[in-house]
Design a protein around this nucleic acid. Structure first.
Length: 642
RNA sequence: GCUACUGUGGCUCAGUCGGUAGAGCAGCUGAUUCGUAAUCAGCAGGUCGGCGGUUCAAGUCCGCCCAGUAGCUCCA
């Protein structure tokens, strides 16, 4: 048989041979780092016997796929160690994830941080003894018997869900055996560096009605230095955590007496939100939106029409007895309010599209465990808006929405940090408005639009709004957790439920389409992203304080104050520091507050009407004339450069 | 909401076996008037997240609650 390798070369063998042998023949070095192999593109164990013509690629621990295999094997080592120390524990699942792996396990009693160290030590012993890993294949019936003998109820459930004729593989290392599709490393000794990172809870099969298991997270690498580098990177990321940095920089705070999920934006944070929202409102107006101001609350009747009362009530703050006809609720969104504006007066096809936007404060009663810094809160301000248009206009309006959001992301320097998710309806139809035809048509329409634009996106089941599919712009926080930053949604139902219509060219009544959209997202969440992206050192145009003028001695404090007035008159945000402190001390404070420019004024500058300019990034820039530097900064502010 | 962990001056942290709370920075006062990341000295600041319990005695042990963190579930 003939085996073609990745580099184009071919080798010929007369009789069946294991991939491990082939690797060994190719090179000892390759054999040492081999983790698995790809046969005709399919990832398999090194122990696989090749007996016919095929293409072969040896996957090493240096490859992305190989690292995944290594981590997967490490999760088995974790499971083995746990079973050794806690024989009564029950194993659920142990997959790899982006940065490592986890294993979900049911323990008789909760385990502690100390247990984690014990488990790590046991894992080290298993790795050190370099147990060979063997793949075993069974029929469904035999597989069930094995896991029943092992008293592993979760594995029984997993196998029961597999089709009747399925070939079921197990992997055995020493006296430990686990149900697994594989592939795995040839032996445990190939894991060179690992660390168990945290213990958390996780529901069996991701369903909150199921039992909560203990999830042990870990990560593994093929060298110690890679692990150290990873840990160092995590430490660095933590320094940018908006929830810490945002508080340290005086951007926001929370107060126990106010309540969970209700952050206070302090002057700096409020200023940033004002800068962003003014920019957004002005740009939206340029692009044909009409700004609205609608009530923060409404009678329950409004939410009954919109469907929120049925689909969203547990997330709403209800005022008064929810069973009373008088019950009011704080708005969790602005849509039904803006619809009333549309309904005020007859609409002609000539009036469409109607584009309404609002810097909208909204209220959602998130579960207590969901709150996080500025990213998940109970009162937030969304750059909300709704476009009511004819079916023919949907495509161009949708594209305009995306274009606007993309423009804002560009101005924030974030366009390369986001990914796109096409969020569709899932199998659990209770969560969605019941209209298969409309769902299918709308999802197909959105897909067409996205493909037309040539957008790179992932499709996600069961992530749609209850009234239609969404395009979500996703961003990750410093810990790698993904959240939706911006969303553009198609709604086929609202026009019908709210009786929104327009009169077409033939004088006939028609139902329009509704696009729900955010342009820059929720301001608090966007601010959180900005803090983390820039580590608090915001682009010049966003900085709440752009320039700090520092007097060198008391003799120049009046000059410093005068400069601040001039800067403010030029539309720049500036403050004076005329305290009786050494200049190094004032500079140090301004640097730590991440203020982009410092003007240092002593007797020389006062005399010559100049300033000594220092940038937070490049240090001392030398002496400049006042007019020159003000003109430069005004230009930088206007440019919205990042 | 669920699982685990955390909570000591504004911030960062110490506080041993249960025996009257301690430091640095920040703050205030005074001195210093200084050229690009911390001048010196003094003073003041705490119901140890809250409530209850055990005890002669609780920051420390127990229970409940509040808030925060990671993850799950949910979601902008």
């Amino acid at each position: 048989m003939e085996i073609s390798l990745k580099d184009g070369s071919k080798i010929v063998y007369d009789s069946p041979i294991s991939i491990a042998e082939i690797a060994k023949n190719l090179s000892e070095g390759l054999y040492r780092i081999a983790a698995a192999a790809k046969v005709d593109g399919e990832l398999v164990d090194l122990s696989t016997i090749v007996d016919k013509d095929c293409s072969l690629e040896i996957v090493t621990v240096k490859d992305k796929d190989g690292l995944q295999v290594l981590r997967h094997t490490c999760s088995h080592v974790l499971a083995q160690a746990v079973k050794n120390i806690f024989p009564t524990s029950k194993l659920a699942i142990g997959p790899t994830i982006d940065n490592g792996f986890y294993y979900d396990i049911e323990f008789k009693t909760p385990i502690t941080q100390d247990d984690l160290i014990k488990i790590e030590n046991e894992m080290k012993a298993i790795i050190k003894s370099d147990l060979p890993i063997e793949r075993l294949v069974y029929s469904k019936k035999d597989a069930l018997k094995i896991v029943k003998d092992f008293c592993e109820p979760y594995k029984v459930e997993l196998i029961n869900d597999l089709p009747a004729g399925a070939v079921i593989s197990f992997y055995k290392q020493g006296d430990f055996m686990d149900l697994c599709r594989g592939p795995h490393l040839p032996s445990t000794g190939k894991i060179k560096a690992f660390k168990l990172t945290s213990i958390t809870g996780a529901y069996w099969r991701g369903n909150e009605k199921n039992k909560m298991l203990t999830r042990i997270y870990g990560t593994a690498f093929d060298k110690k230095s890679d692990l150290d580098e990873y840990i160092e990177k995590l430490e660095q990321a933590k320094l940018r955590d908006h929830n810490k940095l945002g508080r340290d920089l005086g951007i926001f705070m929370t107060e126990e007496v106010i309540g969970q999920g209700l952050p206070i934006l302090m002057p700096k944070g409020a200023k940033i939100l004002q800068i962003l929202s003014r920019f957004v409102e002005d740009e939206e107006e340029k692009r044909g939106f009409m700004i609205t101001r609608t009530p923060y609350m409404a009678k329950n009747d409004l939410y009954r029409i919109s469907g929120h009362w049925d689909h969203y009530r547990d997330k709403m703050f209800i005022i008064g007895d929810e069973n009373s006809p008088e019950a009011m609720a704080l708005r969790p969104m602005t849509c039904p309010f803006q619809y009333q504006i549309y309904k005020n007066g007859l609409k002609s096809y000539r009036d469409l599209p109607c584009r309404y936007s609002e810097t909208a404060t909204e209220f959602r009663n998130e579960a207590s465990g969901e709150m996080h810094g500025l990213i998940r809160i109970r009162q937030f301000t969304l750059s909300d808006g709704h476009i009511i248009c004819t079916p023919e206009q949907v495509e161009s309006e949708f594209k305009r929405c995306l274009d606007l959001s993309y423009y804002f992301l560009d101005c924030l320097g974030m366009k390369d940090d986001v990914s796109f998710r096409f969020s569709k309806r899932g199998k659990n139809k209770d969560k969605y408005i019941d209209n298969d035809k409309a769902w299918n048509e709308t999802e197909a329409l959105m897909k067409k639009i996205l493909d037309d634009i040539g957008l790179t996106y992932v499709e996600a089941e069961d992530e749609a709004a209850f009234y239609g599919p969404k395009l979500d712009v996703q961003s990750k926080n410093v810990y790698g957790k993904e959240d939706t930053l911006i969303t553009i949604q198609l709604d086929f139902a609202a026009a019908h439920s709210f009786e929104m219509t327009y009169v077409d060219e033939n004088g006939e009544k028609q139902y329009p389409f509704v696009i729900h959209r955010s342009s820059i997202g929720c301001y608090e969440r966007t601010l959180a992203n900005l803090i983390e992206k820039y580590g608090g050192a915001f682009p010049f145009w966003i900085c709440p304080e752009q320039v700090r003028v520092m007097s060198l001695t008391e003799r120049t404090s009046d000059y410093a104050k005068e400069l601040v007035l001039k800067l403010k008159a030029a539309g720049l945000r500036a403050e004076a520091d005329v305290r009786n402190e050494k200049i190094g001390y004032k500079i140090r404070e301004a640097q730590m507050e991440k203020i982009p420019y410092m003007f240092i004024v002593g007797d020389k500058e006062k005399e010559s009407e100049t300033v000594s300019v220092r940038s937070r990034k490049n240090g001392d820039l030398g002496v400049k004339s006042l007019d020159e530097i003000i003109a430069e900064l005004v230009e930088e502010d206007k440019s919205k450069r990042v």
